[in-house]
Write a protein that binds this DNA or RNA. Structure first.
Lengths: 139, 139
DNA sequence: GCAAGTGCTTTATATTGTCAAGCGGTGTAA
DNA sequence: TTACACCGCTTGACAATATAAAGCACTTGC
């Protein structure tokens, strides 16, 4: 959906009525709810760069504690945005590898939009060295 | 991002080199840090729909407590993403009105990307009526 | 006067994220 | 064999953040 002028005008004049027309589910509201959770966008961005192991991912996002990362990954897996496979090593489970599902990969559009916006509008912070995860290749 | 076409990869490599020349700052990482704060994306989306008063905004985002909203608005104002004006009423200050700055309005691209992704990939939740702020017209 | 609404501020409490330690496992080198 | 590095989590104590509730000074309308 695009922000066409007519739509915008209609929105300005009948927001309440418009809301009443579509009670119940709002995709973008729900999506924001998911994406605004701490670390989610970082996780998505890191995995857009390629599948990753658990600790590798934690480091790639700039350092997320394992408890929260576990919870986030489980939730994203429940939402079918990421998938997890385990690499057998000599018959024993030894390594988990996380990757984005096709639906998850589509979030590239969101990350890209953020990146484009950031490059245009965010000022460089001179005071600290911000260690980042694959900044050179993430986008 | 490695997902890009070769030509784009080359272009991005150039951007990467630029980043490498300036260690420390990663625009998208920082932007994600800002946007992932609770309520921020909701606030941006609500204000894309037009300027709003404090309580009006709180309701529009689905109900944010005033302490957090105050903090968020102050931070976004510091980042020059939103502006605030006060409406004088008979010589007394009575009403604050918040709106997006031009830079803030550019976040429409991000909200739009989220919306497009959500419509394509998020399942409708049958169990609850999610009351939202101008769902049909926000983007 | 009262009611409804405004824009916050404050405090106690609830919720979320982190730190540190740890477990059972893998692989490599001495 | 031991020591070390790394893995993928789990757990409990603690820190940080968000919320609920109450409230203030103000406005408008009846």
């Amino acid at each position: 959906m695009t922000l066409a002028a007519p739509t915008q005008v209609a929105a300005l004049s009948g927001a309440a009525a418009t809301t009443a027309h579509q009670p119940g589910f709002c995709p973008v509201y729900r999506a924001i709810g998911v994406l605004q959770e701490k670390w989610v966008l970082h996780i998505v961005r890191a995995l857009l760069d390629g599948e990753k192991g658990f600790n590798e991912l934690a480091r790639a996002v700039g350092g997320c504690n394992s408890a929260t990362l576990t919870q986030r990954l489980e939730h994203l897996e429940t939402l079918s945005l990421i998938g997890k496979r385990t690499e057998d090593t000599h018959g024993k489970l030894a390594r988990s590898v996380y990757s984005l599902t096709p639906a998850g990969r589509e979030l590239q559009g969101v990350i890209q939009a953020i990146d484009m916006w950031a490059r245009e509008h965010l000022q460089e912070d001179d005071t600290k060295a911000d260690h980042t995860s694959g900044c050179a290749s993430a986008v």
